[in-house]
Simulated assay, not measured.
Amino acid sequence: MYKRKTQQFVQSSLESQAAVVLLGPRQVGKTTLALDIASERPSVYLDLEREADRQILTEPDLYLDEQAGKLVILDEVQQMPDLFRTLRGQIDQRRRAGFRTGQFLLLGSASNILLHQTAESLAGRVRYVEMPPLQPDEVGADQLNLLWLRGGFPDSFQAASDRASMDWRLDFLRTYLERDIPALGPRIPAATLRRFWTMLAHVQGGLLNAAALAEGLGVSGQTVGRYLDLLVDLMLVRRLQPWHENVGKRLVKSPKVYVRDSGIVHALLGIGTTEGLLGHPVVGGSWEGFCIEALLAAAPLGTEPFFYRTSAGAELDLVLRLPSGDIWAVEIKRTTAPKVSRGFHTGAEDIGANRKLLVYAGEHEVPVAKDIRALPLAHAIELLSAL
């Protein structure tokens, strides 16, 4: 079992808050992490996808009253939205009894649904922690290319072979499309949603062109927006917003779209080996998305990500506005010969970047220009983690 950084965040959050909501896509390791935390303290665990466990909460106050002083872990908590009003009363009651922190750990795989449910009922009583798939600094620099190929879902990454990893990811896609998404309510044909997901993988890191996607699927632009919202909500797709603070520039206003896990990108496109990936047209977009997810997982809580592009050609792959107010400009290239374009220099000047980095596929940190350094992904992760 890999030591997950998320576990430290969850444990420290439980020490200061009554409830913690752990968000992440299915199969990312949330339950394993929660049970590991549960092994260290008096706890109870309920999986709300199981009918037997839902029955236990038919009279939730009666059951939860008996668990006072224990950590109550509720998995797939979005399955019982009416429970949140009860949790609010339980938290307040326990506070009066002297149990102020570490009362509830709520696990969920649909972020907007959960955020909406908890924001109304648990305001001021809950902290949110997002759990990404395995990250480069969790598996080791020597495993970087394997992680990029297979993605960070633990069962995919740790599979006995590339073929077994691909089989796991194909089963994962099928289960999500045929069981998990319908269970959330949307009535979307599985074949249509898979085509949409695959179309996003083909243009990994490209600007969102809803009209082209709608035409390809034979649906309306509004329907495309609904499909995209769903995959973003399930934390399977990232919608990276454009930087919008330079009033005097003609800026691109469409977001960029990434399938968040590189292994899922490759499964959707039928890429099963490193050799096949390096020769595929998506290789640049795949590497860019992989690096962006790793950098955002390492960045301090509250960091805001953007990209920057003007009609005149100035472009930054990633802009990070840190909680301190500093702005980082990041270029990402799948190359061993580090070099930045004039558009990067212009873009970094436009946004007033405090730091300029080129993340590349080499092994050493080297200067590219007077104030720009090229560095491997692992070094960039270390810089952000140290903030």
Rank of each mutant, 00 (worst) to 15 (best):
residue 4 R to G: 04
residue 5 K to F: 11
residue 15 E to Q: 15
residue 25 P to C: 09
residue 29 G to D: 01
residue 33 L to I: 08
residue 33 L to T: 04
residue 34 A to R: 08
residue 36 D to V: 00
residue 46 L to A: 03
residue 54 R to S: 05
residue 56 I to R: 15
residue 57 L to M: 07
residue 59 E to V: 11
residue 66 E to P: 00
residue 72 V to F: 04
residue 79 Q to N: 14
residue 89 G to M: 09
residue 95 R to I: 14
residue 97 A to L: 15
residue 104 F to S: 09
residue 106 L to E: 09
residue 115 L to R: 15
residue 115 L to D: 08
residue 116 H to E: 15
residue 123 A to H: 07
residue 128 Y to G: 06
residue 128 Y to I: 13
residue 129 V to N: 09
residue 131 M to N: 09
residue 133 P to L: 02
residue 133 P to H: 02
residue 134 L to M: 08
residue 138 E to N: 05
residue 141 A to N: 10
residue 142 D to N: 12
residue 151 G to K: 07
residue 159 A to C: 06
residue 164 A to T: 05
residue 168 W to H: 07
residue 169 R to T: 12
residue 170 L to R: 14
residue 180 D to Q: 06
residue 181 I to P: 02
residue 182 P to N: 05
residue 182 P to F: 03
residue 187 R to V: 13
residue 189 P to H: 03
residue 192 T to F: 01
residue 192 T to Q: 14
residue 203 V to L: 00
residue 205 G to F: 02
residue 206 G to R: 02
residue 212 A to P: 00
residue 219 V to Y: 01
residue 223 T to Y: 04
residue 237 V to Q: 11
residue 238 R to A: 10
residue 241 Q to K: 08
residue 246 N to H: 02
residue 253 K to E: 10
residue 257 V to S: 05
residue 259 V to Q: 02
residue 262 S to V: 01
residue 270 G to K: 06
residue 270 G to L: 03
residue 277 L to A: 15
residue 279 G to W: 02
residue 284 G to L: 03
residue 288 E to S: 11
residue 302 G to D: 08
residue 307 F to M: 04
residue 314 A to N: 02
residue 318 L to H: 11
residue 320 L to S: 07
residue 327 I to N: 00
residue 329 A to I: 07
residue 331 E to T: 10
residue 341 S to T: 15
residue 342 R to T: 12
residue 342 R to E: 11
residue 345 H to M: 10
residue 347 G to V: 05
residue 350 D to N: 13
residue 354 N to G: 15
residue 358 L to E: 06
residue 361 A to Y: 13
residue 362 G to Q: 11
residue 362 G to V: 11
residue 373 R to I: 14
residue 375 L to A: 06
residue 387 L to F: 10
